Amino acid sequence: MYQFLYFLFFSSHRSFSASSLFADSCAISPHALFVLSALVVTMSITAVIKHAGVEVYSRSTLRSPFARWMVGATHHDLHHLRYRCNYGLYFTFWDAWMRTEDTGFEKRFMDHTSKRLIKIG
């Protein structure tokens, strides 16, 4: 099993020549390309969530030990409204740590998530 994992993750690393530091740093392994692609997809999805204008997270998000730290539309909208708060790009714990989170965020989040959608049809 370990030989398979070694081959899978490190065999491409051995195939690059270490003739120069520049050439070695410019070589892109298939794994790095996969990680870069996953990062771009993740960044795109979070950008859509933050700029959707609709809160995609539920009211229970604030009670979750992990999900409460995710930046959603309400948190990001407050950044665009006031510009001097809510700087966290992906996680709100940066704002909590640096004391830059808007004091009205939780109330605004609860207001936005308590609105009922109108059912058509």
Rank of each mutant, 00 (worst) to 15 (best):
Q3C: 10
F7R: 15
F7Q: 15
S11A: 14
S12I: 04
S15A: 14
S15M: 13
F16W: 09
F22I: 12
A23Q: 13
S25L: 08
S29F: 01
S29I: 00
H31I: 01
L39V: 09
V40C: 02
V41A: 07
T42G: 07
M43S: 13
I45C: 07
T46W: 03
T46S: 10
A47C: 08
A47K: 08
A47W: 09
V48G: 02
K50F: 00
H51W: 10
G53S: 03
V54H: 09
Y57K: 12
S58Y: 02
L62V: 12
S64M: 09
P65W: 01
F66S: 09
A67D: 01
A67W: 06
A67G: 00
V71C: 14
A73S: 15
A73Q: 12
A73K: 13
T74A: 04
L78Y: 04
H80W: 02
H80C: 06
Y83G: 08
R84P: 00
R84K: 13
C85K: 06
Y87N: 13
G88D: 08
L89A: 10
F93P: 00
F93E: 01
R99Q: 08
D102A: 12
T103G: 05
E106L: 04
K107W: 00
R108E: 07
F109Q: 06
D111V: 06
D111A: 05
D111F: 00
D111M: 05
S114G: 15
L117P: 09
K119A: 12
K119D: 07
I120W: 11
